[in-house]
Design a protein around this nucleic acid. Structure first.
Length: 203
DNA sequence: GAGTAGATCCTCT
DNA sequence: GAGGATCTACTCA
């Protein structure tokens, strides 16, 4: 069973929707301060640059969104509602503001660390369900915005796990009603039947 | 079980 | 000075 870090070229491709689907089943790993945590990605959302009204990049290049406009393979961490650290993956080449939000993962390693970070006692599907929780269990912080995804502290790996095409579901994105027509785009992808996917319990 | 409000702080107007 | 790519807990039925 191979376990290899995804190369920078994976993130530099121009089709953000395709990359979002490719990320399903991959393993997200963080290892800062000797605290290694990893989890399988089971839900993603694509944000297709400046033309996508749901993306922060649609408001133009600002101090906050500079990372999204940069080259792929970087982390974009954003604080939402003053509470939640949201982890995004920047894709495509420099000048194209593509990003992918990691909405849910399935814990693999470092569950005890995740529990400690969230203050929870036991592992259940609420631990890593939803983007706010993903940011929390992996210890992301806005200060980590711009970090490389091909470093030793932060990377995504392929361990040979494959999601069958028929097990990939898609739907409109969540929580972006303000984006008008773009809120209807089927840019959310998830693993069907996985208990860590956040969709079913949302309205 | 479903619906609603509050938390909480950085960013842009 | 307002609002946001959210989550949780609490109320009411």
């Amino acid at each position: 069973m191979g376990f290899k870090k995804l190369p920078l070229s994976f993130y530099l491709r121009g089709d953000v929707v395709q990359i979002s689907k490719d990320l399903l089943g991959k393993v997200l790993v963080t290892a800062w301060n000797d605290e290694k945590t990893s989890g399988r990605i089971v839900e993603t959302e694509a944000y297709a640059g400046e033309i996508d009204k749901a993306s922060h990049a649609s408001k133009g290049k600002t101090a906050r969104t500079t990372v999204i406009f940069g080259s792929g393979g970087a982390a974009y961490v954003y604080l939402c509602y003053g509470i939640h650290q949201m982890f995004n993956i920047v894709t495509s080449k420099e000048g194209t503001a593509h990003a992918i939000l990691i909405r849910a993962v399935e814990p693999i390693e470092g569950v005890d660390i995740m529990l400690q970070r969230t203050g929870k006692k036991v592992l259940d599907h609420s631990l890593t369900r939803g983007p706010g929780n993903v940011g929390k269990v992996f210890g992301f912080h806005t200060s980590q915005c711009g970090l490389s995804l091909v470093s030793d502290e932060l990377f995504i790996a392929d361990d040979g796990f494959k999601i069958k095409e028929q097990n990939i579901g898609s739907s409109p994105r969540i929580g972006v009603d303000y984006a008008g027509d773009d809120a209807l785009l089927p840019y959310r992808f998830y693993v069907k039947g996985n208990p860590f996917v956040s969709g079913k319990i949302k309205k």
